[in-house]
Nucleic acid binder design. Structure first.
Lengths: 236, 236
DNA sequence: TGTGAATGTAAGCAACGATTACACGGGTTG
DNA sequence: CAACCCGTGTAATCGTTGCTTACATTCACA
């Protein structure tokens, strides 16, 4: 991976120059906030080549630090990936909630389940535009499964939000089925499936971050909503 | 991985015993059909620990062969994984087509889209019962993307089958929407999403190969079909 | 001002994918 | 029957990886 091309002789010859001089950034022994930088580097690596492209050594390399340094902050590669996935999940949730905050609580009459639709749309948009980041948050293997409850609070919050939105729609008599659990799982499966099909390479025709993907995503989301909505749509 | 515990001295001391004697399986220099055995071993490794658990060396170890031997048959690990994925895909397709062959072409009147349902059900069942194998056929990265057309004939065949089945249902006036492409993608996304959520650990409550998974899968498939079917169901 | 804990480096381990040189032996030829 | 060729296996090796241990440095607090 990336032969780094640095002649080992050019290693700044270790002259013990007084650190208190006016060059404050002259390779201080202690990195400012290595943990943060490592997560960022790993996040970038994920963005470039997916989860498998993340190596502890490469992250250390990009942080300008020795190969063993990361292990002071993360006991294992998995722990690093865990932190990376948590960060991605945080951003994912933040964007979805922001999109939902913009949409008014009042659902337009001719667009039933408006908030649910908005939720799904924000989900799909983020997944389409950040495929590799979505990949690491979708595979739950990157999250800690040791904690009894834990396992990504952000994700549980998102699922809760979906359930509440759906229950809301049902309370307003917009749903055909009363089995909310099933509708919710079906909805999640649809959206999740589309997002994963995209990152798994099932839509080879679409270029990277193609607008086709987002339009199709919107279309099938509407198809699904139409299918679960109470009033049968009178037109296609 | 698996320290193998074999003292290197016990290596059968290379006495050139005449091979034509009555011990035909006395470690012949040439393995019978190594390629086949390697694929099987890798398939087994996938079954045990997912795609990441496959290493060329371990496959070689299980085949009782030196670490370099596999590279006579596969130019790289990716090539081996490719062959493994193709094999899994073949089995997947075979089972689905068998299930479909058992189902009669005549769809029961009160079960519209019967063949489509049968198709989806067979898909989901195989995915639930062979999660790790489904994983390697779902990630298209294990397939050759060099070939212009290729890319797993079995998969293309399966997609064709889905399209034909759906077109058939439409021709019989069973579909609400005329946009078959959308319905097909939505259906694939739903089923694919459910299968992937299962293998990605989104349903932690279900034990391995739990029957819950299959029942829920059936339920959401029916929910979807009800949503796209022309005649609205009169009860939940 | 000193000292311990936090945080970095250096060196090294085993396992991995992959390459190279070499050894074996079955099948086709003369 | 004999000679050879080439497909297939072995052995040794390289560079990279995750991870550990021993040591060095520096920050924060007493």
């Amino acid at each position: 991976m990336r032969s780094s091309a640095k002649p080992p002789s050019a290693k700044l010859p270790a002259k013990p120059r007084r650190r208190t001089a006016r060059a404050p950034a002259a390779k201080p022994y202690h990195h400012g906030d290595l943990r943060r930088v490592l997560i960022d580097a790993a996040l970038q690596l994920v963005g470039e080549g997916g989860p498998d492209a993340v190596s502890v050594r490469e992250a250390a390399r990009r942080a300008g630090v020795s190969p063993g340094a990361p292990f002071r902050h993360f006991p294992s590669r998995d722990a690093l990936m865990n932190a990376v996935a948590e960060e991605a999940q945080r951003r994912f949730r933040a964007e979805i909630e922001a999109a939902l905050a913009e949409a008014p609580a009042s659902t337009p009459a001719n667009k039933p389940l408006g908030r649910f639709r908005c939720l799904g749309l924000a989900y799909l948009r983020w997944a389409m535009r950040n495929p590799t980041h979505f990949e690491i948050i979708s595979s739950r293997r990157f999250f800690d499964h040791d904690e009894a409850a834990g396992v990504s609070q952000d994700n549980a919050e998102l699922i809760d939000l979906t359930e509440r939105t759906l229950a809301e729609a049902f309370a307003q008599g917009q749903l055909r089925s009363a089995d909310l659990k099933q509708v919710q799982i079906a909805g999640r499966a649809l959206v999740y499936g589309f997002a994963r099909m995209n990152i798994d390479g099932h839509f080879p025709r679409w270029g990277v971050a193609g607008a086709d993907a987002e339009r199709t995503a919107e279309a099938i989301l509407d198809l699904f909503i139409e299918g679960i909505a109470k009033v049968p749509g009178k037109s296609a």
